[in-house]
Amino acid sequence: MEKETTDKRAEKTKANILQAFIALSKEKEINEISIRELTEAAHIHRNTFYLHYTDLYSVLSEMEKTMCCDVKDITEKYTPKELRDNVETVTAEVFRYLYDKREWCILLLRTRSIVSSGKNLLESVFERYLAAYPKSFDRNSLEFQVQFQYCTAGVLGIVRYWLEKDFSQSPEEMAGITGRLLVEGIQGATQLQ
């Protein structure tokens, strides 16, 4: 019972730190935020912060890790074949999640390189998706590696565009476009529905 209470207290402290971090990041750049400011905004002692994190970048790393795990959990509900056959449905779930976590997305994409903050997230989806293809499929081939990089950069570009437009399009609309681009390429995405 004591461990459960301690865990809940740690979760609440981390949530307060994250909330304060997001609020401060709306006012200034990350490199302008001090630990003292953050701990005051989170209403915690400085030492409490250091029990959980080493610096502000470790907070970002934990956010990114959490998002990767959450997206992986979304995809694990589907078999690899279901992922392959229902790209737009799965993509819509992921875009709804990103919309729900839009403050996190904004913070991560503003402060981290687009490649580092999105590649891990997408790889967690693509790994399951690729399991639907024959084992003879050569993932180390130049063609596959180039296509993977192209798709990763494209999806991250779509998310960044959506962010820059203040998430004004619905997650379903963005997922539909993204799914068609991934499956059918630029020609499929431009066809009228």
Rank of each mutant, 00 (worst) to 15 (best):
A153K: 12
D138Q: 09
T111V: 06
F126W: 10
F126T: 09
Y133D: 08
V155S: 09
L122V: 00
V125L: 08
L142T: 13
E127T: 05
Q149R: 13
Y133V: 05
Q149L: 15
V115M: 06
T152F: 13
E123H: 15
S113G: 10
G157I: 05
R128Y: 01
Y133K: 07
S116F: 12
V155K: 07
K119H: 15
V155Y: 03
S117A: 11
Q147H: 05
K135H: 12
S117Y: 06
F148K: 10
T152E: 14
C151F: 01
T152P: 11
F137Q: 07
D138W: 03
L121Q: 06
R110M: 06
C151S: 03
R110D: 15
G157N: 12
V146R: 14
L156P: 04
E127A: 03
C151M: 14
L122F: 01
L156G: 04
A131R: 13
G154E: 04
S113W: 07
F148C: 10
K135S: 12
S113F: 05
Q149I: 05
N120I: 02
E143M: 11
I114V: 12
S116R: 10
Q149S: 15
S117W: 04
P134R: 08
S124E: 10
A153Y: 06
N120A: 13
R112C: 10
V125C: 02
K119W: 09
S117G: 08
E127F: 04
D138F: 08
Y129T: 00
Y129I: 00
A131N: 08
C151Q: 08
G118D: 05
A153I: 11
V115C: 05
Q145Y: 07
N140G: 05
Q147I: 00
R112I: 03
P134V: 00
S136D: 08
D138S: 12
Y129S: 00
T111N: 15
Q149T: 09
V146G: 08
R139H: 15
N120H: 04
T111Q: 08
R110L: 03
E143Q: 11
A153T: 08
N140Y: 10
S141Y: 00
R128S: 09
F126Y: 13
F148H: 15
E123L: 08
Y150L: 13
A131F: 04
R139F: 15
L156K: 14
R128H: 12
C151G: 02
F126R: 01
F144L: 03
Y133N: 06
Y133R: 09
E143L: 15
G154T: 01
D138G: 11
A131Q: 14
L121A: 02
R128I: 00
L122G: 04
F144I: 02
L130P: 04
F144P: 02
I114H: 05
N140D: 14
K135G: 10
S116I: 09
K119N: 13
K119P: 05
L156I: 08
K119Y: 12
E143C: 13
Q147C: 06
N140V: 03
D138A: 10
V146K: 13
V125H: 03
A132F: 02
Y133C: 08
R139P: 07
N120Q: 11
N120W: 00
V155M: 14
S113A: 09
T152S: 15
